[in-house]
């Protein structure tokens, strides 16, 4: 099946028509264990890409490396024309690559609204000297408050705007973290298990939000274990196992790939059979 995303047939490490992120020879070792060993990886621009794989495949480590939260042993990667190897995490974020965390990091003792305002990156009042001169940042503050309110409304958190983030439920914190990431209009949003711990009713609205991001021109890369979600919203799927990219392609094709079946069945072999989703197993995932 032809696709508009890769150049030629999809294969692990294949070239993309318009990549936003290109990584080469990225390796990370923890002692004797090689957590990540990726020869070549490209993330397509303007698409929703899922990064899947069994536990311990190196997905989160890869996230940490790409965003500067961890340093690789070797490798380099280019994001939107900027070489990011060795660039500290806050500068990565300033270049438009914003991540969320697997364990949600809501800023508990800040209000929901302050959480949102903190997501903005161009506030002149955040510099020490300018903070003394209110007129320098008052109008900007007003602008980002309006933007925050708009986003909160979209994520159905507007009723909570004055509450401490600590007062939100787990699912609402996930929503807040995602909304906060959008405050700076990022070019690439990296979501680490956005659905983990979110109840099914909220899942649907989260999925809509992620699709909405794509419509507004943002590239999305997310890690997820929920195959239903992966199939439902992603345009492209990258499968990692034991630190390597073992397969990639459009979701429907990747799910049939023997390497993927192998990686997941390998994972299932050690787990309780009760945890295996029968429908998924029938389709060979």
């Amino acid at each position: 099946m032809a696709n508009q995303i890769s150049v030629g047939e999809p294969a692990p490490g294949c070239k993309k028509v318009d990549p936003i992120l290109v990584a080469k020879n990225v390796t990370r070792q923890f002692g004797g264990l090689t957590a990540v060993n990726v020869e070549h990886l490209e993330i397509p621009r303007g698409q929703i890409t899922a990064l899947i794989g069994p536990n311990g495949a190196g997905k989160t480590t890869m996230f940490n490396l790409l965003t500067g939260f961890d340093k690789p042993n070797t490798g380099e990667w280019v994001f939107n024309g900027h070489n990011l190897a060795g660039v500290p995490s806050y500068k990565v974020a300033r270049l438009g690559m914003i991540r969320t965390f697997q364990l949600t990091k809501a800023l508990s003792l800040l209000t929901v609204l302050d959480n949102m305002r903190l997501g903005d990156q161009k506030n002149p009042g955040e510099s020490f000297l300018a903070s003394f001169v209110r007129p320098l940042w008052k109008s900007h503050e007003k602008k980002i408050t309006a933007k925050a309110d708009e986003l909160l409304k979209r994520f159905k958190l507007d009723a909570k705007r004055e509450d401490y983030a600590a007062a939100l439920s787990g699912g609402q914190r996930k929503l807040l973290e995602m909304a906060r990431a959008l405050m700076s209009d990022p070019k690439l949003v990296m979501l680490d298990e956005p659905m983990a711990g979110v109840n099914p009713a909220l899942t649907q609205s989260l999925l809509e939000h992620i699709k909405g991001l794509k419509d507004s021109g943002t590239t999305v890369l997310f890690v997820e274990h929920d195959m239903h979600m992966v199939r439902h919203i992603s345009d492209w799927v990258i499968v990692m196992a034991e630190g390597k990219v073992v397969a990639e392609g459009p979701p429907a094709e990747v799910m049939k790939n023997p390497a993927v079946i192998d990686a997941y069945l390998g994972a299932h072999a050690n787990s309780d059979l009760g945890d295996v989703n029968i429908d998924d197993a029938k389709e060979g995932i």
């Binding site: 965003t67 939260f69 500290p88 995490s89 806050y90 500068k91 974020a93 300033r94 914003i98 991540r99 969320t100 965390f101 990091k105 809501a106 800023l107 903190l118 997501g119 990156q121 955040e126 906060r180 990431a181 405050m183 700076s184």
Partner: peptide, 9 residues
């Protein structure tokens, strides 16, 4: 870490 992820030095 959350502050870093939002681009704060």
């Amino acid at each position: 870490d959350a502050a870093r992820a939002l681009g704060k030095n």
